[in-house]
């Protein structure tokens, strides 16, 4: 079960991680911006989670990142969440350590304007070239 993964997170990061177990197969973990890269790297490098994808969404509190790590052996999904400040959200890129995050982080940059520091290839991925550089369709701030 995901219990082992969550226990290890608690051991390593103490009360800096806020764990919410929604069901035996789904858990949501909130972390601060400062711990973000340490926790996501821990999920991939130590626990062997597979980054299935990441959801970025513009909420009233800021731009929320939610990285979904699947543990295939157990059939569980552990989601790591953090909220970035608007209007210029910025975070360290996971791509440096985990190539699978490449397209995923480029997509979030394209849609929400999150700057991934240290991303090797920080170009827009999906939106049309004739749009202005600061055009991010999923941002809701006017």
């Amino acid at each position: 079960m995901s219990k082992k993964v969550l226990e290890a997170l608690r051991m390593k990061f103490g009360d800096r991680v806020d764990i919410h177990e929604q069901s035996p197969k789904r858990a949501y973990v909130a972390v601060s911006n400062a711990d973000w890269i340490a926790v996501t790297r821990h999920m991939y490098e130590v626990e062997g989670g597979r980054l299935t994808t990441a959801t970025g969404s513009d909420r009233s509190t800021g731009v929320e990142l939610l990285y979904h790590f699947a543990f295939d052996r157990e059939g569980t999904v552990v989601n790591i969440r953090t909220t970035l400040d608007k209007p210029f959200p910025k975070i360290e890129a996971l791509t440096k350590y985990y190539p699978a995050a490449d397209f995923i982080e480029r997509e979030i940059f394209d849609f929400l304007g999150v700057e991934f520091v240290g991303h090797p290839d920080p170009r827009k991925i999906l939106s049309s070239h004739d749009r202005p550089a600061d055009f991010h369709p999923m941002r809701r701030d006017e």
Partner: peptide, 19 residues
């Protein structure tokens, strides 16, 4: 609430997250 669905499509895992 928040929910996740993932299944094995012919080409690999499909993943949907809904809030």
């Amino acid at each position: 609430g928040e929910g996740i669905g993932h299944i094995e499509a012919p080409r690999g895992e499909c993943f949907h997250f809904i809030r």
